[in-house]
Design a protein around this nucleic acid. Structure first.
Lengths: 210, 210
DNA sequence: GTCTATAAATAGATAGAC
DNA sequence: GTCTATCTATTTATAGAC
């Protein structure tokens, strides 16, 4: 019969979200194509407008969900009763885990930096801020406990997020370079990168490094 | 008379390149609009096609020039007779100076990471690789001289480029957050950020940090 | 070199049947 | 909920006058 299999039929909305996340990550908001998203989801264009008001609304939902989900994990770390050192290490591990689990996270993060949050609503901007503020809280608790030096949070934040995002987000570019037979460098494992950022960050906070 | 003033007439090509760099940085390749670029340059759309074969060709020229220029400065650093430590510090300073002097550099860098160099030709990919390979050369010379530990170049590279690019590239997003009255953190000066990345990187290479 | 049309293609969004 | 067909706006690119 014409009726598609239940597995394909169910959750057309979820399938659109998945396909759209990949499309927005790969091509950006402007470069994303509604028709291509629909076909990737095994659906028709009209179905996207059945579930979402517009391309912009679809995009906002994906980015909003993404930052909110990361924010939730990060706050769990901050709310735990671990030591400040342990919280910093787990903050970093969590960012890496989320970046790995959601392949669209790093590319979308890069693009939103580049365009200054142009397509984001205030609610999502607040979700982004929550991540930063949560790190500030962790750093403050370490300072108050006499275990961390006072270091500019923006500097610590940049030293964590940026290398981790670059590592996960540049896999495609590294592959492209390799395919083109262009130089490149020895690859590094995910765990080695995370461990490095953890030890450097704690080194900075403990004062082992100026 | 209809003839525009000499200052506006001269270098229509250069004016297009300037306007296009800003447009591509702000909106990305797909989001950039040829008509808007022309108007920003004080010209007509047709003039862009007089100077450039296509939107893609214009984009490639801008990105190619950008990476080549950065590569040149970086190689000057590596070719100098400074100590390995000094070269690392100047490598970082140079990246920061270029990012500051060319406001389109960080956004375009972010976007190209995100889309895996989709719009770039092999020549430009090679220019990107040169920057990495030059850092590898500097690190190697330090190791050979017994002054640096051997650390994965990809890790060192990510620890330098990513925070610097994030710092310069996120100015717009930080401003947007401030305008929306959303949290934010204490601002940091360019010099403080550069000094921090320099001391952390050298700490890693000298073994002060694990 | 610079402009005014305008062609041609792409892509967001909707109407309406099933 | 899902589809086909279509409207409409946007936008890259070109033709051709000056």
């Amino acid at each position: 019969m014409a009726r598609p299999p239940a597995a394909a039929r169910r959750d057309s909305r979820a399938r659109i979200l998945r396909a759209a996340a990949a499309e927005f990550a790969a091509r950006g908001y402007a470069g994303a194509n509604i028709d291509r998203i629909a076909r990737t989801a095994g659906l028709n264009k009209a179905m996207i407008y059945y579930h979402f008001a517009s391309k912009a609304a679809l995009y906002r939902e994906i980015v909003g969900d993404m930052f909110r989900a990361v924010g939730v994990r990060i706050r769990e770390v901050a709310a735990s009763d671990a030591s400040p050192e342990e919280k910093v290490a787990r903050f970093i591990e969590t960012i890496a885990t989320e970046a790995e689990a959601r392949p669209h996270f790093p590319p979308i993060w890069f693009r939103e930096i580049a365009e200054g949050g142009m397509h984001l609503d205030d609610k999502t901007l607040r979700s982004i801020d929550v991540i930063v503020q949560t790190l500030v809280t962790i750093l403050d608790s370490g300072v108050k406990a006499g275990r961390f030096r006072r270091v500019q949070p923006l500097v610590v934040h940049a030293g964590i997020i940026a290398p981790i995002m670059l590592f996960f987000g540049s896999a495609g570019l590294r592959a492209r370079l390799a395919r083109a037979g262009i130089g490149g460098v020895a690859q590094v494992t995910r765990d080695a990168m995370v461990a490095h950022v953890q030890s450097v960050t704690l080194g900075v906070l403990k004062g082992t490094v100026a």
